[in-house]
Write a protein that binds this DNA or RNA. Structure first.
Length: 263
DNA sequence: AATATTGTTCAGCA
DNA sequence: GTGCTGAACAATAT
């Protein structure tokens, strides 16, 4: 579930709670979420250090340490972070707890263990070596770059938008949202669209994310014109009140309004 | 009790 | 080689 706007909310949360505090201890309760590292290496890399800056690229949260290394958090489908005083308010599936000298904890919770945590030397090199595409909300990411990234793609627009190596930040829910706002059928292929239509897709996806980042990720605060909280069984289209349907597109479930998003 | 869900990786196919 | 699709992964809800 955590897509770009969710991870951006986590980033802001960490930025406003857990920066500039010395790390006293790191407790790993489940090594399944550790990538390329063991518990002692992770603890050794964090103890005595502090987080100085919280950054984000796509669905990755990058925490800069005071020795210029980074702790990378990916949240999988069910991950989140929480900051609380030791011994209080711990969530149910804490996999890693980072304890500070002020008796507060930054906990990484992931019910389904599909997220990942790792220490890296350099954020730019990490993004390059993983071949991640540009972040959707990066101000340097232009509509020209978008057209270039999509040129020659043979698959559906939905699966292409979800490919983090092409562009970073869009998941299943918001790819449906972008298709809905542009009134495109979920099976629409990239090759079916001309540059002008793709330019509109580019503007729309940035507008949606900007809107959700501003209003917050709580569904009740989102504008009702979004499909996102009408996604599901027995839901109605916020535009025409028709029934929302579900089909499989590139192996994922796609929710859409068959009358607003005709072929 | 199967099935769907979610993001990423990877096998297999065109 | 390349790019795309679908299965696998974990744990839970329905």
């Amino acid at each position: 579930m955590p897509e770009l706007p969710d991870v951006e909310a986590f980033r802001k949360y960490i930025q406003s709670t857990a920066l500039h505090k010395t790390i006293r201890d790191v407790k790993v309760f489940d090594t399944a979420v550790l990538k390329n590292t063991g518990p002692s290496v992770l603890a050794g890399g964090l103890k005595g250090r502090s987080f100085e800056q919280a950054e984000r690229h796509g669905k990755y949260c990058l925490l800069a340490l005071d020795n210029s290394k980074y702790l990378v958090l990916h949240f999988g489908m069910t991950g989140f972070v929480k900051y609380y005083k030791t011994g209080t308010q711990a969530p149910n599936h804490v996999r890693v707890a980072i304890e500070f000298e002020n008796d507060y904890v930054l906990a990484y919770d992931s019910q389904r263990k599909l997220g990942e945590i790792q220490l890296i030397d350099d954020a730019t090199r990490f993004i390059e070596s993983w071949k991640l595409g540009p972040d959707v909300m990066n101000p340097d990411f232009s509509d020209k770059d978008f057209l270039k990234a999509l040129s020659g793609r043979r698959g559906t627009l939905k699966s292409t938008l979800m490919n983090q190596k092409i562009i970073s930040g869009i998941g299943n829910v918001y790819s449906d949202e972008i298709m809905f706002q542009e009134r495109l059928h979920p099976n629409t292929k990239v090759a079916d669209l001309d540059d002008e239509q793709l330019g509109l897709v580019f503007k729309t996806m940035q507008r949606i994310f900007a809107q959700v980042i501003e209003t917050g990720i709580e569904p009740q605060n989102m504008p009702d014109s979004l499909l996102t909280h009408h996604r599901g069984r027995d839901m109605k289209c916020p535009s025409c009140q028709g029934a929302i349907e579900k089909i499989k597109v590139a192996g994922r479930s796609a929710y859409f309004c068959p009358s607003c998003q005709a072929h």
